[in-house]
């Protein structure tokens, strides 16, 4: 077990006043709160912060912690409490703690008792009736390809959670699950798997697992909700004269009719060919006129002929 320097976590000096600690906590909490900050590390940072605050904001716990700190431990070092160490801090509950206390570290639990965190959390006074806490919810971001969303799929995922033994001690556990990714999931959508979160304590139900869909970038399509967009390159003569072009869609290749006189940037709609849903999304096709290589003398002559025959100022709208 590593020693934790709560002062360092909070970025305050050892002799910081209660007000300074409060202010430091508030500032850092806003920065790292997992509901406000989507970075993967934010949740861990916040957990550390909440734990540090739980100790430093409470004069009794802080005094005990300071004693241990004086006893010679420093951050990151292997730490074992002095023999016979017993916390005298009263966990007299009443209201919330500042954190999901079931998440506190072994270090915290060794100093302040295994149940201390959870007791505080439950708001049950010491010596109160047995308490029970619903397991934590787990949030998991699941990368999904467009093809998977289009067809639906099943995916194996592994999760870090913890379970409680009879003594109420949490131990980490890696769980693998096969989860179904329903057809037509879209960016940011959440899937709730009831009871698949962290284990409940004292007979309380398990938490839930929330999987947030993160659509992976696709080489051909961009996505907006259920609609997908494809940029379709067309030759100048296809645009001028009209054409039938083969177009990839999520459901396979289709033929698209391009009307004569098409322009670059023109948007065509293939109704219902986006992601499936109660109302299917559409596929948009944006035309992009691309030039062939003009290499030979004949090619250049043809271009020259166009220039002579088709007076055209493409920059007219710019007023030049």
């Amino acid at each position: 077990m590593k020693f934790k320097d709560y002062y360092k976590t909070m970025g305050v000096p050892e002799d910081a006043s209660a007000d300074e600690i409060k202010k430091a906590y508030r500032t850092l909490a806003r920065k790292h709160h997992p509901d406000l900050n989507k970075d993967e590390e934010a949740a861990d940072k916040f957990k550390e912060l909440a734990e540090a605050n739980e100790v430093l904001k409470d004069p009794a716990k802080r005094a005990e912690y300071d004693q241990i700190r004086k006893y010679g431990a420093s951050a990151g070092e292997e730490f074992a409490p002095p023999s016979g160490w017993r916390s005298g801090a009263e966990f007299s509950g009443g209201g919330y703690t500042t954190a999901d206390a079931a998440e506190f570290s072994d270090f915290f639990e060794t100093l302040f008792g295994q149940h201390a965190a959870r007791k505080t959390y439950a708001g049950a006074g010491t010596g109160g009736p047995p308490f029970a806490i619903r397991g934590e919810d787990i949030h998991y971001r699941i990368p999904v390809t467009l093809e998977e969303s289009y067809k639906g799929s099943t995916r194996g995922i592994s999760l870090q959670t913890h379970r409680f033994d009879d003594a109420g001690r949490a131990s980490p556990e890696t769980r693998t699950l096969n989860v179904k990714i329903p057809k037509g999931v879209i960016q940011g959508q959440k899937i709730r798997l009831r009871g698949q979160g962290g284990a409940g304590f004292g007979g309380a139900p398990n938490g839930d697992l929330y999987m947030e869909v993160e659509l992976e970038p696709h080489p051909l399509f961009s996505v907006d909700g259920r609609d997908v967009t494809l940029v379709l390159p067309v030759a100048p003569w296809e645009a001028a004269l009209g054409a039938t072009a083969k177009v990839p869609t999520l459901g396979g290749t289709v033929n698209l009719t391009i009307a004569p006189g098409a322009q670059s940037g023109q948007k065509l709609r293939l109704k219902g060919r986006g992601l499936p849903g109660s109302a299917n999304g559409d596929q948009y096709v944006v035309l992009k006129i691309v030039m062939p290589a003009v290499d030979s003398a004949e090619d250049r002559a043809l271009m020259e002929k166009m220039r002579r025959q088709m007076p055209f100022n493409p920059r007219e709208t710019l007023g030049v």
Binding site: R134, N178, K180, P182, V185, R194
Partner: peptide, 28 residues
């Protein structure tokens, strides 16, 4: 023991499913 069964979730949307009591339980 290996969990090989496939778990199916519900999509988090506006469909109403829960009463006040259940919301209280889930939120603690």
């Amino acid at each position: 023991a290996k969990q090989t069964e496939v778990v199916t979730g519900e999509i988090v949307d506006e469909t109403v499913r829960y009463g006040l009591k259940e919301v209280c339980e889930v939120c603690g």
